[in-house]
């Protein structure tokens, strides 16, 4: 078994009285794509900053390539921040030259951005900018990639193309840690870690994250009339086409709330985001 690229053990980070990350353990092995999910404020960014070595844990330990995060480990990993970290008023080639000069490596422009080399980064559109940022992160042949919402705002075909590149890297043995708000993107990952209020609350496949959450689908010719009493009863109620979905409720609860509105009920599987919302609700309720 090769050494994990990232090995975080019971990592906690406090800011004053606020605990941003609370006892989180996480590993990323070579060739593995791990997705980090969670609401804003769940602690994802703080955890990533500790992995990058930008922030020290209050307690617990982060090991990268078997050692402590440092300038040397930073040169072996590629990081694409949400803001991309490019200079808008420099050309694509100048951006890559500068970044490659910092980390070493690369002698020619990658194919994915070759046609853009003389353009100013500020003028090439978000999809192109994301390709450039990704190329910049790959310039020094990193063993580990850390990607913060890598395909936010791009069209589905461009997203598929970026993920092709991410998978190629993983197949070559690079480990990938990716945060995302796109549920389709979560399905690209080998393993998921769900964070909530600083803790890792679920881990594994999509099924492991959605497990234990039930959804009742309500079909009624009078769906507008079905929607209101369910929502008013405080149930997590959503529309899907003309079908009403009630997350984290039992058939009895749904039937009671519906009263005399005629409807057919069926148990269906939750989506990843429905499962996350149900878990947040349950945690919120238990915290009161």
């Amino acid at each position: 078994m090769p050494e994990p690229l990232i090995e975080a053990t019971s990592v906690t980070r406090r800011f004053g009285s606020f605990t941003a990350v609370d006892g989180v353990s996480l590993t990323v092995e070579p060739g593995e794509i791990v997705g980090l999910l969670g609401a804003n404020g769940a602690g994802k960014t703080t955890l990533i900053r500790m992995i990058l070595g930008l922030l020290a844990p209050t307690s617990g330990e982060v090991r990268i390539f078997g050692g402590r995060p440092s300038r040397a480990t930073r040169a072996r990993l590629g990081y694409v921040p949400q803001g991309l970290g490019l200079w808008n008023d420099m050309t694509v080639a100048e951006n890559l030259d500068f970044i490659d000069g910092t980390y070493g490596g690369r002698s020619h422009l990658p194919d994915a951005v070759a046609g853009l080399s003389a353009r100013l980064v500020g003028g090439i559109g978000l999809g192109g900018q994301r390709r450039v940022a990704f190329a910049a992160a790959l310039g020094h042949a990193p063993q580990l990639l850390v990607l913060d919402e890598p395909t936010s705002g791009v069209d589905p075909l461009s997203r598929a193309r970026l993920w092709d590149q991410i998978h190629e890297q993983a197949e070559a043995g690079v480990g990938v840690l990716v945060t995302t708000h796109y549920m389709q993107e979560a399905q690209q990952c080998d393993r998921l870690v769900l964070m909530s209020q600083g803790r890792a609350v679920a881990e594994g496949s999509e099924g492991d994250i959605t497990g234990g959450v039930s959804v009742v689908a309500v079909d009624s010719p009078r769906w507008q009339e079905a929607f209101a009493p369910l929502s008013d009863a405080g149930l997590l109620t959503m529309l899907s086409g003309t079908r009403v979905r009630v997350v984290g409720a039992s058939h009895t609860q749904v039937r009671d709330a519906l009263g005399d509105v005629e409807a057919a009920l069926a148990s269906v599987g939750p989506t990843l985001e429905e499962a996350m919302a149900a878990r947040e609700r349950a945690r919120g309720a238990s915290a009161l």
């Binding site: 999910l37 609401a39 549920m183 929607f227 209101a228 997350v247 990843l272 996350m276 919302a277």
Partner: peptide
């Protein structure tokens, strides 16, 4: 984030309903 997105969709659904 996904959790707030579910909540926002609930509000939008309510308006449509």
């Amino acid at each position: 984030d996904p959790v707030s997105r579910v909540d926002l969709w609930r509000l939008i659904s309510t308006a449509a309903a």
